[in-house]
């Protein structure tokens, strides 16, 4: 549907295989206008491969990806009009200056891109180093030059693949501020990252990927709120406490964690549980409500946690 209105990113059933390895496995992604969308997963989860498919650099084995309703596979670079970004580290010609590199990519963009070079250099604070060869740039400067190159296209959608990777803390802070500023200007941003703090700070929606599959896709605040009703329990006898909790109606997902237990239950059930523990001769040292961080949720989804007790204490766990 060229030229028609569209959702910035809509991918359905994306699959990419390399030999026996399925790098991206049936991935659906929907990024709405104005979203700052976190694409979160450990290294090797298939984030970069997904971005490459979105940008038309590689062909999916199955599925479709559309940017504003245009399929890069069918429409080539026409599908990238209004779209910019980079996968892995942005690459430039080391023997050319920063400005010369931008002149080159602007020439390949046309449409007045060359007239935006000065503004883009100012935005990423590289104007004073623009006449130096890129071969002498630091990693952070190259990342910023990558953003400048993307801005030349006056994009509505920005795809950034781990833009803060390899930067020092100051560089990471500056890069996040820059992305925030661009998002505030109305750009839709897809940010691939394995840094939880970064996603939590910048994004309002997330997809969490594990071994090529999306294990969560939706609102970040909703994801964080979904862990409400979880409690941390420390007692004089955690094994006995786990048995009592697991037998209690309304108590679910009892796990040994960090020298105590965690469990899910409503407030009235927790009150009943505290009485039941006392009657069982188990002293309560602490019983506190706990909201999971994105990091905990991420590891739970991408690596798994110790198994739930389910009424029976597994031997050798949480000793």
């Amino acid at each position: 549907m060229s030229g028609a209105g569209g959702i910035p990113i809509q991918a359905r059933g994306l699959v990419k295989r390399y030999g026996h390895v399925t790098a991206v496995d049936d991935v659906d992604l929907t990024v709405g206008a104005g979203d700052v969308y976190g694409y979160l997963g450990p290294n090797g989860a298939g984030k970069t491969t997904s971005l490459r498919m979105l940008l038309g650099l590689i062909r999916p084995d199955e599925g479709t990806a559309k940017l504003f309703g245009r399929d890069p596979l069918a429409e080539g670079v026409r599908a990238l009009d209004g779209v910019a970004g980079f996968v892995e580290a942005p690459r430039f010609y080391p023997y050319l200056t920063g400005r010369r590199n931008l002149e080159l990519v602007a020439a390949l963009d046309g449409d007045g891109a060359a007239g935006r070079i000065g503004e883009a250099l100012d935005t990423v604070e590289l104007a004073d180093r623009a006449r130096d060869r890129v071969g002498g740039y630091s990693h952070g400067m190259r990342q910023r030059l990558g953003i400048a190159g993307a801005l030349l296209r006056a994009p509505k959608l920005l795809l950034l693949d781990e833009p803060t990777t390899g930067l020092d803390p100051g560089g990471m802070r500056d890069m996040r501020r820059l992305i925030r500023r661009l998002a505030d200007q109305g750009l839709t941003v897809l940010l691939s990252s394995h840094l939880m703090g970064e996603v939590e700070e910048l994004c309002d929606r997330v997809a969490i990927v594990r071994t090529g599959r999306v294990v969560y896709e939706g609102s970040l605040p909703e994801l964080l709120a979904s862990t409400a009703g979880r409690y941390e329990l420390r007692t004089t006898d955690d094994v006995r406490a786990a048995e009592v909790a697991a037998e209690r109606p309304g108590v679910t997902d009892v796990r040994f964690s960090g020298g105590g237990l965690t469990l899910s239950a409503g407030e009235p059930v927790v009150a009943e549980l505290s009485i039941a523990l006392a009657e069982a001769g188990v002293g309560i040292a602490a019983l506190v409500p706990r909201t999971a961080t994105l990091e905990e949720l991420f590891f739970r989804m991408t690596e798994g946690e110790p198994p739930a007790v389910n009424g029976r204490v597994p031997e050798g766990v949480a000793r």
């Binding site: 060229s2 030229g3 959702i7 009009d81 209004g82």
Partner: peptide, 10 residues
Amino acid sequence: AHAVSAPKLR
């Protein structure tokens, strides 16, 4: 997801 008018083709 919010849809918008697609960027104009060059």
